[in-house]
């Protein structure tokens, strides 16, 4: 199990990197953390002639919280590791969902090397971060020699392991918007072994009003279709008391998920089981998210949100 030969490039700046990518064309691949790409190379499922190592590109390893008027967001550079995002205290404070989800991404050793942006553009239908980006309506910035564009989560992923990236484009940064209002989030998943890709995973974002009643609820799913699925769950739960709702009130959100999603069979689970799980996990995650929204609303009472 050894990879095919390739030419190795290690640009030092974004300009150099995109110039290199433009030069190698279809024959090239970006090499980030290598946690998804190298297994494929080792098994010779892929054999690009050129690899462009972006790990030492200047300025790409930052994790920042920015507020540019349009609202706050967490910006993650293309060389930042999952670990860096997971352990960033500021990020955890403004957008706990990232840590909630990242704890389910593989094992710490993989997270030490794998990049958050790499995961997004790899677009595995089981990747937690794509669902998080989709749930929050985030985006990714793509650069090439001809310019730069910002693509939304919904445009980014076009199919399983397929994105709208052109071969000459480098993803430089991901932006995860911080949701407005009294919000709470939760990530829940079932995987076969701890750390495995989920059989079914769901992230939920619940917004509550000042009376602590559910104003809106949204969920995003992994392993439930070819791309991250986002569902608006507001209808069945709108207006219920976010803190004290009975489990069966949340079950309605679960039923909606089961009805709407169209997962596939694979060797680890049937589609029917996945659909069932989506219902159970949606209800659990929604309830947890709502409780957190209530807690956060309490914390921020009086303060601007």
């Amino acid at each position: 199990m050894k990879p095919s030969a390739f030419a190795y490039h290690r640009p030092g700046t974004v300009d150099e990197a995109v110039a290199t990518l433009a030069g190698v064309g279809d024959d090239g691949k970006v090499l980030a953390g290598g946690q998804s790409l190298v297994p494929m190379l080792n098994m010779r499922l892929a054999a690009p002639a050129h690899l462009v190592d972006v790990n030492r590109v200047d300025g790409l390893d930052e994790v920042r919280v920015v507020d540019d008027g349009a609202g706050a967001s967490v910006r993650v550079g293309a060389a930042a590791r999952h670990t860096d995002v997971e352990h960033d205290a500021e990020v955890a404070a403004v957008l706990p969902l990232l840590r909630q989800a990242l704890e389910h991404v593989a094992h710490p050793t993989i997270r030490n090397r794998g990049t958050t942006v790499g995961s997004l553009v790899h677009a595995d239908p089981a990747a937690e971060l794509n669902a998080v980006l989709a749930l929050l309506g985030g985006s990714v910035t793509l650069r090439s020699t001809t310019g730069s564009r910002v693509v939304n989560a919904s445009e980014l992923v076009t199919g399983p392991m397929q994105t709208c990236l052109r071969p000459d484009e480098l993803a430089t940064e991901a932006a995860f918007p911080v949701p407005q209002g009294h919000t709470g989030t939760a990530w829940t998943e079932v995987s076969r072994r701890a750390g495995d890709y989920a059989v079914c995973g769901v992230g939920v974002l619940v917004t509550v009003d000042d009376e602590l009643r559910v104003r809106s609820a949204r969920a995003a799913y992994v392993s439930m279709g070819p791309v991250p699925e986002v569902l608006d769950l507001t209808e069945p739960v709108a207006g219920i008391a976010a803190g004290g709702a009975r489990p069966d009130e949340w079950a309605a959100a679960g039923r909606l998920a089961t009805a709407r999603l169209e997962p596939d069979d694979d060797i680890h689970a049937t589609a029917a089981y996945r659909g069932h799980l989506a219902g159970v996990l949606t209800a659990r995650a929604a309830r947890a998210a709502a409780e957190r929204a209530v807690a956060r609303a309490g914390d921020t009472t009086g303060a601007s949100t």
């Binding site: 079932v190 680890h268 689970a269 049937t270």
Partner: peptide
């Protein structure tokens, strides 16, 4: 597996 137990229940 959990999937199989689920179907066994059903």
């Amino acid at each position: 597996s959990p999937s199989e137990l689920h179907h066994l229940r059903e």
